[in-house]
Amino acid sequence: MSFLSIEHVSKKFGDYKANDDISLSIQKGKIFGLLGPNGAGKTTLIRMITRILLPDTGTILFDGKPHNDKHTERIGYMPEERGLYKNMKVYDHLVYLAKLKGLSANDAKTKTVQWLQRLAIESWRDKKIEELSKGMSQKVQFIGTVIHEPELLILDEPFSGLDPINSQIIDEEIHRLKAEGKTIIFSTHRMEQVDQICDEIGLINKGHLILHGDVMELKSRFKQSIFEVKFSESTENIAISGIAVVEQSANHMVLKANEKSNAELLRLLLDRGLQISSFQEILPTVQQIFIQQVNSSTHA
């Protein structure tokens, strides 16, 4: 079931089309990776989802209903350009953000205490934001984003500026939120994170959505029939028509088999009497798909 449907949404700034007829849907409980080079229009799309901007044309359905301002209380947004009031104390700041998201004063206070405990940062409670390190204030910012238990979470580069330990904590929190059934939009340039985290992706370039779908499905769609084969004994050469050797070492080969299924290739290899210890198809990484698609759409 799609939690967020974006239908033919366009947004112009003057003559510049930041978003041009974008349609995509994001399933409930999934992590959606929103990708694209700088200036592609990701921020504009996110700003329309968060109701900071309104689309010129097209509609956005939030949980099946036309998007409205009341929905912003069910969205948590951590922008890439983030910040907090420097002279406010951690506790006061989180309570304030929670109240702006519609929580009652009491709920806001309870939740703040809970989250400070959960991330083990109760000792920062009365520290001013300006006293915190960058990583520390990132954590506070993350709490500020999720404190009202939003059903839709939008994280723009959530790991930037975090050390490995804190990255892992945030990573765990993201997965925990997903397990709770929250829908998450994840925007990043770091493709290895997309491979690890995202269920679905959407790729935007120059205001257009050029690719959209399930990560596994996209990988197999863009696979180039490249296989890594390991042999249990040293193998010199294999000359099979239609199969190119891309890489070769003593008992390891990377093969490119055009227009042949996995089974066909495997059978051909076995027919040669080769001792195969492992056979694996190499799927393209999201990064490869990203670069390929951006380049082809740019040159088109």
């Binding site: 109701r51 912003t72 209380e73 969205i75 947004y77 922008p79 910040g83 420097k86």
Partner: peptide, 15 residues
């Protein structure tokens, strides 16, 4: 301050 601090975008996604 809100603008240079970048707290603005968080705020206007709430109000």
């Amino acid at each position: 301050e809100e603008k240079t601090n970048r707290v603005m975008e968080v705020l206007i996604s709430s109000v």
